[in-house]
Design a protein around this nucleic acid. Structure first.
Length: 303
DNA sequence: AGTCGTGATCATGGCGTAGT
DNA sequence: ACTACGCCATGATCACGACT
């Protein structure tokens, strides 16, 4: 760094885009600049750092070991900046109070923990009183005012008009199956194909009701071999080839508890996505901390 | 003067295809 | 099965312009 060149946020943005895309030209499309701008930014970074960040391949680029490490830092820097820009820090540190939040099982397990940690950093004095409840109980408690906010799979909610709501996440539903499962050899999989094979029915968070809804609308029924409310059991059964299931990407993990691989494949039939959302009482005057938490979730999920 | 972006152009290497 | 060829997408480089 003899010339004392500074590293800019722009360079980091382009670098991360390139690392994500694996191709400079694709990264260029994503950040709306020309390919040469990406090349230049990466070159400048490499010069400033004194290491090569990418291995140049015939088709695209691949991160080097150093590049991979630096990419983690770069992502963290960009995230931190994003947080700083999107969160009202000036209010956050002084704000105090309790927010009563009800969340259903999968929301609690797969969605909330990371977000709660981030919220805590910005609003250290706000306490989130988190309750594990099923969706109908959350809805009743929100309407009666026992809860400030409810977090649930609102694609299951019958009459959403009773609430103010905001959809935080739409998650595509896909087929989960073992690597060696015969369906994995089929190029485009339909519900009719799935109906031929043993099906593992998840019962947690109304999994059965929501599944049967789209099965019935296609005029078919799954061949249910097992029912379980345990996600880990479900993963284990799928990974060992005892059956397949259809669940949202939010819940998907590539490995079962024993470390066996689980594949996920799209279905050609139209299956409604899982919608995770926030509900609150229509005419309720939310407390400041509750408003802050609501706003935080909406902002965090928008990006 | 310095920064950032663009488009034209170049060299490289994989891939498909036609011919043997 | 092998080879030679041309096509194509890729990243690198350069000259130039806009902006501050």
């Amino acid at each position: 760094m003899a010339k004392g060149k500074d590293i800019s946020m722009r360079q980091l943005r382009y670098f991360v885009a390139a690392a994500d895309a694996g191709q400079f030209s694709q990264a260029a499309l994503k950040v709306h600049v020309s390919q040469s701008a990406i090349t230049a930014a990466v070159l400048q970074l490499e010069q400033a750092l004194g290491v090569s960040l990418f291995e140049r391949l015939p088709y695209g680029v691949a991160l080097t070991a150093e590049g991979n490490k630096f990419a983690q830092h770069a992502r963290h820097i960009l995230d931190t900046l994003q947080d700083a820009l999107s969160e009202p820090l000036f209010l956050g540190h002084s704000m105090q109070g309790v927010v009563r939040v009800g969340a259903s099982y999968t929301v609690l397990g797969y969605f909330l923990p990371a977000l709660l940690a981030r919220f805590k950093r910005s609003y250290p004095q706000v306490e989130i009183d988190l309750l594990d409840m099923d969706r109908p109980s959350i809805e009743t408690a929100v309407l009666s005012g026992e809860l400030d906010l409810g977090l649930a799979i609102i694609s299951n909610t019958q009459d959403l008009m009773r609430f103010e709501h905001h959809v935080l996440i739409r998650s595509r539903r896909q087929l989960w199956l073992a690597t060696q499962h015969p369906l994995n050899a089929v190029s485009s999989i339909t519900l009719a194909d799935v109906a031929e094979h043993a099906y593992i029915m998840p019962t947690v968070d109304e999994g059965e009701v929501s599944a049967l809804r789209y099965w019935q609308s296609q005029g078919r029924m799954p061949k249910v071999a097992f029912r379980t409310s345990s996600m880990e059991a479900l993963r284990g059964l799928v990974a060992h080839g005892f059956g397949v299931t259809i669940l949202s990407d939010m819940l998907y993990r590539a490995w079962s508890l024993e470390g066996k691989k689980i594949e996920s494949r799209p279905l050609v039939d139209v299956i409604p996505p899982m919608e995770l959302g926030l509900i609150w009482r229509p005419e309720a005057q939310l407390s400041e901390p509750a408003q802050a938490f609501r706003q935080f979730l909406i902002m965090a999920c928008a990006s």
